[in-house]
Simulated assay, not measured.
Amino acid sequence: MDDRRPASLGILGAGRVGTVLARLAVSAGYRVRIAGSGDPSRVGAGALATTATAQWAGDVAQESDAVILAIPLGRYRELPVAQLQGRLVIDAMNHWWELDGLRPDLADLRTSTSETVQKFLGRARVVKAFNHMSARDLEEEARTPGAPGRKAIAIAGDDPADVETVAGIVDDLGFDPVVAGRLAAGAMLEPGTDVFGAAASAEHLRELLAGFATSQRGIMQARARRS
């Protein structure tokens, strides 16, 4: 086993995305812990149909080598901050105004939502991944390395070692990793971009990322950041 590969993955969020990622991670050989929004006994049967263990959110954060955030982004302030300190945290969350409400802190084009999460979590090591592909595509498009038609997942993070570790997780779960850049580049993966919703090959995903700067969203963001 690669020494950089975490032995265990924690998933905070037992909705559709969290459940799919739990199944993929179990199939890839990870020990998986998962938490919903409260009592572990309320975690759905879809997650527990695997060997994933349902626990309280704080215990999942404390006991896992890496933790995937799959809760609604509007609830990020409910995350167990103390237990996530120093932990590798994979941000798979997205801002949906219909669900999160009108939130200036999540709609600010001068930053990315992952940077907002990083600021809140302090010493946690946040990397953006698994957010731009739908739960259905995550479930249906996972393939072994080198398989025809394999799709790609974009990654954004500041620490090269953490990005490399997350790239390994992405590969293990069935997708080609494509590094988008530093954590600020996570803005290119958010709703409203050409990347968001894409179930694309690595080559096509790189093309979509390269076109961000000249897209309407990219131009708007560049103006906001200059201001």
Results as ranks from 00 to 15, higher is better:
residue 121 L to H: 07
residue 186 G to Q: 11
residue 89 V to C: 08
residue 169 I to D: 10
residue 140 E to F: 07
residue 92 A to G: 06
residue 118 Q to E: 08
residue 149 G to N: 01
residue 164 E to N: 09
residue 194 D to K: 14
residue 114 S to T: 06
residue 72 P to A: 05
residue 136 R to Q: 13
residue 134 S to V: 00
residue 103 R to P: 02
residue 173 L to C: 08
residue 156 A to S: 14
residue 158 D to K: 10
residue 121 L to Y: 06
residue 157 G to S: 02
residue 169 I to R: 11
residue 109 L to Y: 06
residue 119 K to N: 12
residue 172 D to H: 10
residue 170 V to M: 00
residue 193 T to L: 07
residue 180 A to S: 01
residue 95 H to F: 13
residue 130 F to W: 06
residue 116 T to Q: 14
residue 105 D to W: 08
residue 161 A to R: 15
residue 104 P to L: 06
residue 193 T to Y: 08
residue 145 P to A: 10
residue 164 E to D: 12
residue 84 L to C: 05
residue 111 T to H: 04
residue 69 L to V: 09
residue 189 L to C: 11
residue 108 D to G: 06
residue 103 R to D: 04
residue 112 S to A: 12
residue 133 M to K: 02
residue 197 G to R: 00
residue 82 A to L: 11
residue 133 M to N: 02
residue 75 R to T: 15
residue 155 I to V: 01
residue 86 G to M: 06
residue 93 M to F: 07
residue 145 P to S: 08
residue 177 P to S: 09
residue 181 G to T: 00
residue 126 V to H: 08
residue 100 D to I: 01
residue 151 K to R: 15
residue 168 G to R: 07
residue 96 W to S: 13
residue 104 P to A: 10
residue 127 V to F: 02
residue 89 V to S: 07
residue 60 V to G: 06
residue 60 V to N: 07
residue 183 L to N: 02
residue 145 P to D: 08
residue 152 A to E: 06
residue 135 A to R: 00
residue 85 Q to C: 03
residue 184 A to N: 11
residue 152 A to H: 05
residue 102 L to E: 14
residue 188 M to W: 10
residue 160 P to M: 02
residue 121 L to R: 09
residue 198 A to S: 15
residue 162 D to R: 05
residue 124 A to S: 12
residue 165 T to N: 03
residue 185 A to E: 15
residue 115 E to V: 13
residue 125 R to W: 03
residue 66 A to N: 04
residue 140 E to L: 12
residue 155 I to E: 01
residue 183 L to D: 01
residue 85 Q to K: 15
residue 160 P to C: 04
residue 185 A to R: 14
residue 180 A to P: 00
residue 196 F to N: 01
residue 159 D to E: 14
residue 144 T to M: 13
residue 177 P to D: 12
residue 196 F to R: 03
residue 73 L to G: 01
residue 61 A to T: 06
residue 105 D to I: 10
residue 127 V to W: 02
residue 172 D to V: 01
residue 139 E to F: 06
residue 65 D to E: 15
residue 108 D to N: 13
residue 66 A to K: 03
residue 101 G to T: 05
residue 94 N to G: 00
residue 189 L to R: 11
residue 138 L to S: 04
residue 156 A to Y: 09
residue 164 E to V: 07
residue 69 L to E: 08
residue 89 V to A: 05
residue 173 L to M: 13
residue 98 E to N: 11
residue 163 V to F: 01
residue 144 T to D: 12
residue 183 L to S: 02
residue 101 G to N: 07
residue 81 V to K: 15
residue 117 V to E: 09
residue 173 L to Y: 07
residue 154 A to F: 11
residue 154 A to V: 08
residue 95 H to E: 09
residue 85 Q to E: 12
residue 117 V to G: 10
residue 141 E to A: 13
residue 120 F to H: 15
residue 144 T to I: 11
residue 127 V to C: 00
residue 136 R to L: 11
residue 64 S to Y: 09
residue 180 A to F: 04
residue 188 M to V: 07
residue 187 A to Y: 13
residue 157 G to A: 03
residue 62 Q to R: 15
